[in-house]
Amino acid sequence: MYGAPPLTRLAPLALLLIAGFVLPLLLPQYFLYLGNFLMMFAVLALGLDLLLGWAGQFAFAHIAFFGIGTYATALLNVRLGVPFVVGMPLAAMLAGLIGLAIGFPATRLRTVYLALATFAFAEAAQWVFNSWDKVTGGPDGLRIAAPNILGYRVGTDPTAFPVMAVILALVIAATMYLTTSKFGRAMCAIRESEHVASASGIDVRSTKAWAFAISAVYAGIAGGMYTLFQSFVNPDVFGFQQIVLLLSMIVVGGLGSIPGALIGVALLGLLPEVMRTTMRGLLIWQELVYGLILIGAVMFMPRGIWGFIAGRKGSR
């Protein structure tokens, strides 16, 4: 499907917005916290999926841009008094610029080499968050001041929830336009074959670098979202575990599709919570179960859960 998405496809977003404003009145705080957490991860996963699922670039640096977005938004607010509505876009742009700067050299590399270079970048970024303690607070972490959005005070789960829902709806809409645009088709062409893509007149290098930058902007936005409902950040939030979790989410959900990414986020994001509440005594088995789910997903559902569902619908 190419061109602007029809309005009917945007209908679920209206539901998301309604839920964003109604649910804080109905649900207890714990569920709202989970909801906020999942919405933040949804933005992260959609951004990583652009790069991995659509453009086919195997990059691990996503979590570093998430960290840059979080620290930049928080520091702009705490140190310089920049309000959230200005600070978050600035932070997302900063993440995007760094992404572009990394993207041009990094996307010269392919497959495993790209994965390793970006993995090293992510680890180095975490080292910087840990060691630059004058600015980031180092391992002790940084307190985040409750953001103020045009007079509306955020900072708790119920107050952040509607704002998170609005941001997520905008990001999903942007992803729909992006993936059906000419740029989106260029990314798909590169994923299928770089040679064919460049023979059809697509500038492979700059498309890859821009995909890298846009994906970094998504991560930066998610970083801003983090400051909406959390009051504290430390470098552990941006560890290797998180990028593995994100990768697993989009692979289990289904690469290269918006519903797939969202399903993966909901499933793997809620799994630890479900295990914590239903199998309290078996918490120690969590890692083992998680590993088995990952292996099972790649063995039995190569297109992910969404691909599995869509495939069945298609064959009928």
């Binding site: 086919g56 195997f58 990768l247 692979v251 088995w285 969590q286 083992l288 590993g291 088995l292």
Partner: peptide, 19 residues
């Protein structure tokens, strides 16, 4: 590309062994 699936498979193995 099956590379992503294979690498996620090895990540799964790492969790299984650790777990």
């Amino acid at each position: 590309s099956i590379l992503v699936a294979m690498i996620i498979g090895t990540v799964g193995l790492s969790y299984v062994l650790k777990g």
